[in-house]
């Protein structure tokens, strides 16, 4: 089982690596297209601005590789910015094209509340899914973001979180699973997601 974490110099990868080790997997960390395409499962982490992240992915020629991987149907997990980047475009940085894997946009959180949305908030799970096995609805997860994803198809929203608005905090479509929160920073409930993702990839 080869699980690759996409490395594009984006913040704290080590916690993602450790979370996978906790789930009994020693991941490959790579910023090379061939390592991405040869993986059995792929994780796209990400913090920071969507603008800078897309630039980095383009520079490392990873845009095509990530799209191709997802199209192949193998298990994919996006984390935080890794969810937003799946959309067609983000408002961040004045409007930037993203990976366009999922139809939808990325918008800034409303300003009545403090932004970034930083800390532990609840995720209401809308329907059953194997990756959320063992996790109850309304469990707390750790968030740190200023933008949120708006998928055009509301049926793709698996989890919702409330912060001034109700936004999509978990998205699922076929082999694609992505969270706005950081499961690797969300204690035992977050580690359960990694275990479930690994289990699902093995099956």
């Amino acid at each position: 089982m080869k699980i690759t974490i996409v490395d594009y110099e984006s913040g704290n990868l080590r916690s993602v690596i450790q979370a996978l080790r906790f789930a009994q997997i020693d991941p490959t960390v790579s910023g090379k297209p061939d390592q991405i395409l040869s993986a059995d499962a792929l994780i796209l982490p990400g913090v920071g601005s969507g603008n800078a992240a897309m630039k980095a992915l383009e520079q490392q020629k990873l845009v095509g590789a990530i799209r191709e991987f997802i199209a192949s149907g193998r298990p994919f997990m996006g984390i935080c910015l890794g969810l937003q980047l799946l959309m067609e475009m983000t408002d961040e940085g004045g409007g930037v094209d993203c990976l366009g894997v999922i139809r939808g946009t990325v918008e800034r959180l409303p300003s009545e509340y403090k932004v970034p949305h930083m800390g532990w908030n609840q995720v209401v799970i809308n329907k059953e899914h194997k990756i959320m096995r063992g996790i109850s609805s309304s469990a707390y997860f750790y968030f740190a973001h200023s933008y949120y994803s708006v998928p055009a198809d509301p049926n793709l929203v698996l989890g919702t979180t409330s912060y001034g608005i109700d936004f999509c905090s978990i998205l699922v479509r076929d082999n694609v699973f992505a969270t706005q929160f950081h499961p690797e920073k969300s204690g035992s409930v977050g580690l359960q997601i990694y275990k479930n993702f690994v289990q699902n990839a093995i099956e």
Binding site: S10, G11, V47, G48, S49, A52, L81, P116, M118, A144, H145, S146
Partner: peptide, 8 residues
């Protein structure tokens, strides 16, 4: 903030 994001 520009390089790693405001959140960090």
């Amino acid at each position: 903030a520009g390089r790693f994001g405001n959140q960090c």
